[in-house]
C-alpha cells in the first residue's frame, strides 16, 4: 500500500463514519488517529451523545473480529480475558478465551467496573497480550480498544487509575450536536441500529498497512523538539502535579503523525501537533491541588496554556 492509497482509504473510512456520526468530523478524525497510531481510544462524555455509536461504527467499518464488553460493577477480570476450564474428556485445563480476543474491542462504560477489572486491561492494552495461569496468549493484530466512559461526577463510577489512562493514546469528547444536526438526527425515519447501516470498508490487513505508513510520516527535527518541549513544560508547570510521561510523549508523536496522514500529508506540521495536544495529553496530567479550589483549571485548559507558551519552530 502506498501513502496515496492509504490517504484514500482513510478518506473512505472517514466518509463511512460520517454517515452515522453527523457533524463531528473532528471527533471522527481523532478516532481514526488512535487507530492509525496503534493506540486505544477513550471517549468520555455524558450519556446519549453517541459515544457507543462512534465506537461501534468504527468497529463495524473495519472488516475484523469485534467484541463488545459492557462494563458493570460486578464484571470480573476473567469475564474479559477468559478462564481456564477443566475439560473432563481430556482430563486437563483448557483456556477459554474471553471477549478481549478480537481486533476491535468496545469497552463500554469502562469506569463502571471496579479498579480490579479495569486493571485486567492493562497488559492487553500496552503489550497486546494477556497472561492467564502463567501462560501468555497473543492478542490478534491489529488490536484496538475503544472505551467509553461517563464523566467522573456521575453516580456509580470508579475513576480509571493514571496508569491505565496513560495507555489510551487519545481521549476525546463528543459534545452535543448543533441545532441543525440534532434536527436531522431526530427527524430520521431510520429504525435500525445506526451501525447496521454501515458495511466494512477496510480489512484488518489494510489497517495494519496504514498503521505502518503512519509511522513513516516525516517529523522534522525542530518539530520533534517542539513535542519534547511541550511534554517537558507540562512537567514544569506550577499547576500540574503529574506531567506527561515519556509513554505519553511517544503517543503524542504517533498521534501527530496519524493526524498528518489523515489530513492527506506525508509530513507533520506544527498544527498537527497542536491539534492532538489536548486529546493526547490532557487525560495524562494531574492538576496540583491548591488552597483556592476555584483556581483549579481543567487539564485541557492547562495543556492549551502550556502549548501556547512554547515557541513554534518556523
Amino acid at each position: 500500500m502506498t501513502t496515496k492509497e492509504a490517504i484514500d482509504k482513510i478518506q473512505t473510512l472517514k466518509t463511512n463514519l460520517g454517515r452515522v456520526i453527523k457533524g463531528k468530523e473532528a471527533v471522527i478524525e481523532l478516532a481514526i488517529a488512535a487507530l492509525l497510531a496503534r493506540g486505544h481510544l477513550l471517549i468520555e462524555d455524558v450519556p446519549g451523545v453517541g459515544k457507543t455509536t462512534l465506537a461501534h461504527s468504527l468497529a463495524r467499518s473495519i472488516d475484523a473480529s469485534f467484541q463488545r464488553i459492557q462494563f458493570t460493577s460486578d464484571l470480573m477480570p476473567s469475564d474479559i480475558v477468559g478462564v481456564s476450564i477443566f475439560n473432563e474428556s481430556k482430563m486437563s485445563f483448557e483456556f477459554k478465551k474471553g471477549p478481549i480476543f478480537a481486533n476491535v474491542v468496545l469497552a463500554d462504560e469502562i469506569n463502571r467496573a471496579t479498579p480490579k477489572t479495569q486493571s485486567a486491561l492493562l497488559e492487553a492494552m500496552s503489550e497486546e497480550q494477556v497472561s492467564v495461569d502463567n501462560i501468555t496468549h497473543r492478542l490478534p493484530s491489529p488490536f484496538i480498544i475503544l472505551a467509553t466512559q461517563n464523566p467522573l461526577e456521575y453516580a456509580g463510577t470508579f475513576p480509571l487509575p493514571e496508569s491505565q489512562l496513560d495507555r489510551f493514546t487519545i481521549s476525546t469528547q463528543i459534545g452535543y450536536p448543533t441545532e441543525e444536526v440534532e434536527r436531522e438526527i431526530i427527524s430520521s425515519k431510520n429504525t435500525r441500529p445506526l451501525h447496521e447501516i454501515l458495511s466494512p470498508v477496510v480489512t484488518s490487513e489494510e489497517v495494519a498497512a496504514m498503521q505502518d505508513i503512519a509511522l513513516t510520516v516525516k517529523m522534522e527535527e525542530d518539530l520533534l523538539t517542539y513535542i519534547v518541549r511541550i511534554c517537558a513544560a507540562t512537567r514544569e508547570h506550577a499547576d500540574i502535579k503529574l506531567g506527561v510521561s515519556p509513554r505519553g510523549a511517544m503517543a503524542f508523536h504517533r498521534a501527530a503523525q496519524a493526524i498528518a496522514l489523515i489530513n492527506g500529508r506525508d509530513y507533520c506540521t506544527p498544527d498537527d501537533i497542536k491539534r492532538v495536544a489536548v486529546p493526547c495529553l490532557a487525560h495524562r496530567v494531574m492538576q496540583a491541588r491548591h488552597v483556592m479550589e476555584d483556581s483549579i483549571k481543567e487539564p485541557a485548559l492547562l495543556i492549551e496554556e502550556v502549548v501556547e507558551g512554547i515557541a513554534v519552530p518556523v
Partner: peptide
C-alpha cells in the same frame, strides 16, 4: 506580526 507561539497556519 506573527508571534512566536503561533503556527504558520494560525
Amino acid at each position: 506580526e506573527k508571534t512566536a507561539f503561533e503556527t504558520p497556519l494560525e
